[in-house]
Design a protein around this nucleic acid. Structure first.
Length: 395
DNA sequence: TCTGGGGTCCTAGGACCC
DNA sequence: TCTGGGGTCCTAGGACCC
């Protein structure tokens, strides 16, 4: 039997695990990350203790509050989680240069070059597991396979906290029910179930063309671990769901201005330029609309982006005469280098960059544009984006 | 009990150009 | 003074993932 060479690693209940690591008093308790049980929002992560009560990610917080009234609800500290994630990935890179970051708590490793260094891939997997758990302080599950999909499915079997090797991927996958396949979501599932198909092999027999296109390419076919270039982030977005729906256009504008500002600061800090901007609204009936347009030239300037964002917002607000539940903004077509800029734009670019310097030193709420001051409705925030209770705009 | 925030990728139609 | 077909870009929306 050949040795598996793709290792998939997943941190168990990641956000909750980090909170437990930082506060051992939470150990063994039902920890629920996402917000307070009386707030709008959903569960981001639930510890295994909380899952026993039927709480899972994606569930409305209010529902989670009912199912698990004594649960420990936390808002979440995403800066801490992403720092922990970087340390986790660094540990993995000590074992193999071929680490592919799949998400904040998940990675694939190619072990094919490592077989001469360790007695077996299983020894290696165990060693990686021990090292991560000791150095990072969180538990991981691992799957071994001959393809990414095989390894990932193996991890599902291994959870929580074990290592599993999927020996016969083809056999395993063809007997699997469709909702277990990564990439098949609710919508596709409903359609396929409507056709009377529940398992992968039924799909393969009844609709070989669909099977060939969607699932077959991911199953082991004798090919080596496929190279995938390190993904470059292609878009950045910020959005807010209001505690209560809002009808007042000025107030909506202020929220949007704040989000555009956060994106502008982010772009400047990372020396990036955006080529396109998109605004998103969600009305009180949950209907969601987006509108996007190209910027005149790649830019990070708040002013340039704001002009477009405001236009897009006004177009979207005409769709329905309902209060808004959410407003959001996204930038795309990210580039590192600017094209030749029209002379006039240099002034606003420099102004944006200067304002950002002030914000970096004194926090987001340290400086306001005249328009924001005029409205006096914007929520002041600290530099992590946390809304402060009191406003002191006059100082 | 309503349903977050941050992403990726795909499709499809219309505009525009040759 | 009414007309084809193909390529490419732009935009809107949706499915999906963690």
């Amino acid at each position: 039997m050949r040795s598996p060479f793709v290792l998939h690693i997943d941190i168990d209940a990641f956000f909750a695990a980090v909170e437990v690591m930082l506060n051992p008093a939470l150990k063994g308790k039902p920890v629920i990350i996402g917000g307070m049980p009386d707030e709008r929002g959903v569960v981001s992560t639930a510890s295994y203790e909380a899952r026993k009560y039927g709480v899972h990610s994606g569930m409305a917080l209010r529902t989670a509050g009912q199912k698990c009234p004594h649960g420990i609800f936390l808002r979440g500290r995403f800066h801490v989680y992403s720092q922990t994630s970087e340390r986790f990935m660094d540990v993995l890179r000590r074992f193999s240069p071929r680490v592919e970051v799949a998400s904040i708590d998940e990675a694939y490793m190619d072990l094919s070059g490592m077989r001469y260094l360790y007695p077996s891939v299983y020894d290696l997997a165990h060693k990686i597991k021990r090292t991560v758990e000791q150095e990072i302080g969180v538990n991981v599950s691992m799957g071994l396979g001959f393809s990414r999909m095989g390894a990932k499915l193996a991890t599902e079997v291994a959870k929580p906290g074990n290592i599993f090797f999927l020996r016969d991927e083809k056999e395993f996958i063809s007997n699997l029910s469709l909702e277990k396949i990564p990439g098949i979501g609710r919508h596709t599932l409903v359609i396929l179930q409507g056709l009377g198909i529940k398992r992968v092999k039924e799909l393969r027999n009844a609709y070989p063309a669909i099977w060939k296109r969607t699932i077959a390419p991911h199953i082991y076919s004798g090919s080596r671990y496929p190279d995938r270039h390190e993904p470059r982030t292609k878009s950045f977005s910020r959005e807010t769901t209001f505690p209560e729906d809002i009808l007042d256009r000025d107030l909506i504008m202020s929220h949007l201005a704040y989000l555009v500002d956060r994106l502008s600061v982010y772009l400047i800090e990372h020396q990036l330029y955006a080529g396109r901007i998109e605004v998103k609204v969600r009305f009180s009936d949950f209907s969601t609309y987006t509108k996007r347009m190209s910027l005149d030239f790649p830019t990070y300037s708040y002013n340039n982006m704001w002009k477009r964002a405001l236009y897009l917002l006004d177009c979207l607000l005409k769709k329905k005469k309902l209060p808004l539940r959410l407003v959001g903004v996204k930038v795309e077509d990210i580039s590192h280098q600017r094209d030749i800029l029209p002379f006039v734009s240099l002034k606003t670019e420099k102004l944006s960059s200067g304002i950002t310097d002030v914000k970096k030193r004194f926090g987001f709420s340290s400086i306001f544009t005249a328009r924001e001051l005029l409205l006096e409705k914007i929520y002041p925030v600290d530099r992590d984006g946390v809304v402060l209770k009191t406003a002191s705009l006059t100082k």
